[in-house]
Simulated assay, not measured.
Amino acid sequence: MTDTKIEITAELVRDLLRDQHPDLADRPVRLGARGWDNQLWRLGSDLAVRLPWATRSADDLLRKEYTWLPALAPRLPLPVPVPRRIGEPSAQFPRPWLVTTWVPGVSGDRAPATRAAEAADALAGFLTALHRPAPGDAPAGGHGRGGPLADRAEQFARQLASATEQGLITDPGAVRAVWDDAVAAPGWAGPALWLHGDLHPANVLTLDGTFCGVVDFGDLCAGDPAYDLAAPWLLLPDGAADRFHAAYQPAPDAATLRRARGWAVLQALGGLLVGEAGVRGEPGGKPTWGPPAQAALRRLTATVR
């Protein structure tokens, strides 16, 4: 159910298409996935319909994707869901929705990358292509994404305390050491670069042990690349981060890598808590988020001296 109390069904999707995009209405419709903000319905073999179903902010995120992603997608070396049509709010469904290309694969929280070298090269190639200077009217990151890491200190302290109280972390001091070092690093002095803004394991797709696509650009924004450069610790197998850093261009400086580690800790703590909520059957919880978050924290704290 959406927060507007409208149940999303295949029949509703067909009705919306008949009303606004009738040339697509005869294609087969079936449920593809239910994400944090949106439901994804397969539309034939090559398209999908994305409809917001949980958070009100999803409306603006869909419109942002429709505005910016078609221009960025051609330069990206991994497939992404490119918006083709937009659906406007109507009496049937009072929120915007998108028709996008369909990207096949399995989400990385369910099928983690196992081919370390191939996955590291694929991720580095994707972020090298994406991280280019953004125009002045590019969107700013929500919730501090791409901004100063220190602005998230309160969130870090709250999440670390919660994870420690729940017994999810055995060495909170090591986690804090990574964070403190990251906050102490010099800030980003370069131009604001395009960022994906949400590269957690559920937003990358895998096939045969490596990455085959990246989805959910609702948090697309401009800022410090360190935010996205947290991804190697969150997405790659053990020992693959060095390969990523060698392949990513231009090579990140030491300060950027320190900030990236801090963002990785923050994102891993969030994933750990969402995963535990899923184990407990709480609303919004996703049990598959816990294991990759735990692995990321293990990798990050193993380097604390």
Rank of each mutant, 00 (worst) to 15 (best):
Phe211Asn: 03
Glu11Asn: 08
Ala277Gly: 00
Gln20Ser: 03
Ala295Ile: 02
Leu47His: 09
Arg115Trp: 00
Leu24Phe: 10
His200Glu: 12
Arg259His: 11
Ala116Glu: 06
Thr206Pro: 00
Phe244Pro: 03
Arg298Gln: 15
Pro94Tyr: 06
Val215Tyr: 09
His196Leu: 05
Pro291Gln: 05
Leu130Phe: 14
Gly141Asn: 12
Arg95Asp: 09
Gln159Glu: 15
Ala120Met: 08
Gly142Asn: 08
Ala240Lys: 02
Asp109Lys: 04
Pro237Gly: 12
Gly290His: 01
Gly209Thr: 07
Gly281Asn: 01
Gly167Glu: 07
Ala91Gly: 13
Pro77Gln: 09
Asp60Gln: 14
Ala255Cys: 03
Pro186Ala: 07
Lys64Tyr: 00
Pro112Thr: 14
Trp179Ala: 06
Arg258Leu: 15
Asp180Arg: 11
Glu118Val: 13
Ala268Lys: 03
Val29Leu: 00
Leu51Met: 13
Pro52Glu: 04
Gly223Ala: 05
Pro252Cys: 05
Pro74Asp: 01
Gly167Ala: 04
Thr100Leu: 13
Ala226Gln: 07
Pro96Gly: 03
Ile8Asn: 06
Ala163Leu: 07
Gln249Tyr: 00
Gly32Tyr: 07
Ala254Val: 12
Leu47Thr: 03
Glu282Ser: 00
Ala134Val: 08
Trp36Ser: 02
Thr2Met: 00
Gly142Pro: 01
Gly275Arg: 00
Gly284His: 04
Asp19Glu: 15
Ala134Gln: 12
Asp109Ala: 13
Pro81Gly: 13
Ile169Ala: 02
Gly197Cys: 14
Val214Ile: 15
Asp198His: 02
Leu234Ala: 01
Pro28Arg: 05
Pro83His: 12
Ala111Asp: 15
Ala129Gln: 13
His131Pro: 08
